[in-house]
Nucleic acid binder design. Structure first.
Lengths: 104, 104
DNA sequence: ATGTTGTGCAACCATTAGGTTGCACTCAAT
DNA sequence: ATTGAGTGCAACCTAATGGTTGCACAACAT
């Protein structure tokens, strides 16, 4: 949960990873399964999954000998809240500056 | 406002850009001004500003012959809301699957 | 008129990121 | 016992990214 914000954003900055996340959002799946539909290789997908896992957006769920992954929506919400907080803070600060400037 | 989500996330996936954004969140500033404090060159900063501008996170504010940039908090909020919506949607979907699985 | 400050453009360099192929290993099923 | 599916690891390639320096030009100040 104490995931650094920047790496999470970086992980979300790739189209293929969004394809993977979207698929996982429908239902948990393994790298091999994903590879049957997505236009990139199984190994490429595995790398993406590793990245997504490291930033906490995804979680491995061992099922027998295969490793499925499920998306962690909670981490999305957490990231969203942080962005929201930062955005509104800056917005407010810049408004304050405007007010001060007009007072001069 | 109709900014693509993925490029915005990609833009937010770099530490130096966050340094810039943080500085701009305190007060609008030009590339040259930023360069006096940040550890990278003016040109590097200019490139980052161009990226941030293209995804709508930042806006140029011409002041005389210099070009200051202000951060657009609203775009942060917009991005945050989108992530939130997606995250909760997936969360809910996976819960449904769990319920169905348990029913079997 | 001249120097200085802020920008913009271009070439160039090094590193990383995304992708691929190939091989080895394990576990299930026939 | 052997085949096949699912995984992991490693080497390798290419393109994009982040950074730099150098130069040219406009605008303000001296």
């Amino acid at each position: 949960m104490k995931e650094a914000l920047v790496p999470v954003c970086a992980a979300l900055g790739d189209e293929n990873r969004w394809s993977i996340l979207t698929r996982l959002g429908e239902a948990p799946a393994s790298a091999s399964t994903l590879a049957t539909t997505l236009p990139i290789s199984r190994q490429a997908i595995a790398k993406h999954l590793e990245i997504l896992q490291r930033v906490g957006l995804v979680e491995p769920v061992p099922v027998g000998r295969e490793v499925r992954y499920r998306v962690l929506g909670s981490e999305f919400s957490a990231t969203a809240r942080r962005l929201e907080a930062i955005g509104t803070a800056w917005e407010r600060r810049l408004l304050d500056i405007k007010v001060i400037a007009e007072d001069l």
